[in-house]
Design a protein around this nucleic acid. Structure first.
Lengths: 158, 158
DNA sequence: CTCATGTCAGCAACACTGACATTT
DNA sequence: CAAATGTCAGTGCTGCTGACATGA
């Protein structure tokens, strides 16, 4: 880490600020989730399963924005911990139907508490109104870029 | 990438929003810098050298918030491209004095233009006032966490 | 044949760690 | 001796690519 004064030059470049803040956020998440033996993706996966019910890995990946290949490892771990069950789909034998177990529900609740704590840690110096503000601004940025990206995906570019 | 709808569950968690935005920022930087055959650290290094003059690698690393080990590779590339010169320090023979070359100045100017473009891309949907707002909020977060971290470094914890 | 699904191996970028030789 | 400097090898995480076998 940079122990001394700020990087001066780079100072207030938004791209830099965002990346740096993300670094701290990641550290908080790693620390918090680590205590619960959870990986970064677990929260998204478990929460999606609870909110939308059992589904195939492919659907799950699309919903959570997790690559199918990465999902495999995540589900392996979650299944081994008993938080999730993978059952072959009789209707379409390519598919695994992923289901949240009671233990998974428990873990999800713990993760939710942890996530709340992390937000509070991350945003500690900001007032409630400022937190709202920041959230709104970031949501707008993300919407913009997600959109731009999907339009790009359609044009068969050089 | 997540081609479909937003991850719903995670939706508006600041920690998630920040990480995602950082991802887009990183992509913009990679793309922009890639066109100039530059790596992520190059801008910080060159700008620091111009603004603060020649200095040892250790100083440079501290100023830019770059690990000394990573700096080695960065400087290797920059030196090979002729953007920087490494000369042994006569006064302290452990040290290399790193100097910005004229070619390096040119590259820095190109990078600065690119950086400006990237900010504009990243913040496209926001008004000038909103960009200011976002910047202020992020700066405050970073100040807070940098501080917290350095206090932690002092306490010899369990 | 094609497409989707699940699995695996591996890569690049980044921040970071540990070890080491040299010099102060 | 302890501490700083520069170098190198290597790690862990993340998002992603490519290949592959199986089945729809």
């Amino acid at each position: 880490v940079s122990p001394s004064d700020l990087p001066a030059v780079v100072g207030e470049l938004p791209s830099w600020l965002v990346t740096q803040t993300a670094l701290y956020a990641d550290r908080l998440v790693s620390a918090g989730f680590g205590r619960l033996q959870a990986h970064r993706y677990d929260y998204r996966v478990l929460a999606t399963l609870r909110d939308a019910g059992p589904m195939s890995q492919a659907d799950l990946g699309r919903r959570c924005g997790i690559h199918l290949s990465d999902l495999v490892a995540t589900l392996n771990a979650l299944a081994e911990a008993g938080h999730v069950r993978r059952t072959p789909d009789a209707a379409d034998r390519r598919r695994n139907v992923v289901t949240l177990t009671p233990a998974g529900r428990g873990q999800l609740r713990r993760l939710e508490r942890e996530v709340a704590r992390i937000q509070d840690d991350l945003l500690a110096p900001l007032s409630a109104a400022e937190r709202e503000q920041l959230t709104r601004l970031l949501v707008r940025l993300l919407e913009h870029h997600r959109e731009k990206q999907s339009t790009v995906e359609h044009s068969t570019v050089d």
